[in-house]
């Protein structure tokens, strides 16, 4: 259950971004997770409901975008969509392939309300 560690690391980054952006609160966090990243999106969601408490993202929604696993063959150059435990080239069967999608563990974007926006829109 290392998803809690991952989630805390994510929130540290989000809080830093929120501080820099002068945010009042964070409303949405989008992460991109490949099946080969070793992080389970559902468990990350569960960890998030606990870890977000007391942070600037306490009311935020966490969106996990799952990526397909895709390999590029170093032998014949073909690209194939594959399963996590079978990363072979579907065209020629070679095992010398490179994963081009499916091992991401990325903080994609953070949606927030700025403090300054409120001040700007406040009537004089």
């Amino acid at each position: 259950m290392h998803e809690l560690s991952v989630c805390q690391a994510m929130l540290t980054q989000v809080e830093e971004i929120a501080r820099r952006e002068n945010a009042r609160d964070v409303t949405r966090i989008v992460v991109r997770i490949g099946p080969l990243a070793g992080v389970v999106p559902d468990l990350l969601q569960q960890a998030f409901t606990v870890a977000r408490a007391g942070t600037i993202a306490a009311e935020a929604e966490l969106v996990t975008e799952e990526q397909p696993i895709r390999v590029s063959c170093l032998s014949c150059g073909a690209e194939s969509d594959v399963l996590p435990n079978r990363l072979l080239c579907k065209s020629c069967g070679d095992y010398r392939t490179r994963v081009i999608s499916g091992d991401e563990l990325l903080l994609a974007s953070v949606e927030l309300n700025r403090l300054s926006d409120e001040r700007l829109h406040r009537p004089a």
């Binding site: 991952v6 690391a9 994510m10 540290t12 980054q13 971004i17 952006e21 945010a23 409303t27 949405r28 992460v31 992080v39 563990l105 990325l106 903080l107 994609a108 974007s109 953070v110 949606e111 927030l112 309300n113 700025r114 926006d117």
Partner: peptide, 20 residues
């Protein structure tokens, strides 16, 4: 950085979750 329809700010990050 771009504004969404409802005035929120969406910040694109694209940073590894475990970058720290």
């Amino acid at each position: 950085h771009e504004h969404t329809h409802d005035g929120k700010v969406a910040v694109e990050v694209l940073l590894n979750l475990l970058s720290e």
